[in-house]
């Protein structure tokens, strides 16, 4: 019997190993976690399997509150992400909100094509296609599709941050307790996070977005 026979076995075996090792390392780890969470960061990222936030940030359970969807979009009319933001910012009181796009994003690639993705994905990615339309000239100047996908992912991160800035709880948290928003791109080929520069501002804050 091969040890890779059933993909579900891997998960359960992996989970048992994880639980066992964690307890060996710190017998109180789980009892501490069961008391509650107080993450400092809300991460809005892509569902892409290659961008597991906690792993690639070398962090631990309890560190990052997470929402992941197709192409890390935050749409004004999306109740799911709005609820995540409300819960994380107004109730858990995270200190940072990170929107993370990434290179070779399937969503960005799809938005660059004119293919019919089915009604669900067409609708979800419509705002990204709108970004492509608005930035047609600058996208066309880029050398290849990979570069265009990266740039579209960057534009999409900025766009998500623009939407987040209008969220009532975020507005309040920015003025009352200095919450900050950060746009980053994860480079899959390098395994590295890159901060995006602030848009429309000569003061380069390396993505450290501040309302003041």
């Amino acid at each position: 019997m091969s040890l890779v026979a059933d993909p579900l076995d891997r998960i359960f075996a992996g989970n048992r190993t994880y639980a066992e090792r964690t307890v060996q390392d710190d017998p109180h780890h789980f009892s501490q976690l069961s008391k509650g969470q107080s993450p400092e960061i809300l991460w809005i990222g892509c569902a892409d399997s290659r961008v597991p936030e906690t792993t690639l940030c070398n962090l631990k359970p309890g560190d990052i509150f997470v929402h992941r969807n197709i192409a890390n979009c935050v749409h004004t009319d999306d109740l799911s992400s709005a609820s995540v933001v409300e819960y994380a910012v107004a109730h858990i009181k995270v200190k940072k909100v990170v929107v993370c796009g990434h290179t070779s994003c399937g969503g960005a690639n799809a938005a660059l094509s004119d293919g019919d993705l089915g009604t669900t994905l067409n609708t979800w990615l419509h705002p990204v296609r709108e970004l492509r339309r608005k930035h047609k000239a600058e996208l066309e100047k880029l050398p290849d599709d990979a570069a265009r996908a990266v740039h579209l992912a960057e534009l999409n991160v900025h766009s998500s941050i623009e939407v987040l800035k209008q969220h009532p709880s975020i507005k309040r948290a920015i003025s009352e307790r200095g919450l900050s928003l950060h746009g980053v791109i994860y480079d899959i080929a390098a395994g590295q996070l890159r901060l995006l520069e602030e848009t429309g501002n000569s003061k380069k804050s390396f993505g450290l977005w501040s309302p003041n």
Binding site: Y18, P52, P61, V66, S83
Partner: peptide
């Protein structure tokens, strides 16, 4: 924040597509 899917299942990048909401 306490349930990073890939960490608790022992999987790595590239192995699990993830959606997380409230």
């Amino acid at each position: 924040s306490r349930i990073p899917a890939e960490a608790i299942t022992g999987l790595g990048p590239g192995e699990m597509f993830i959606h997380r909401n409230i």
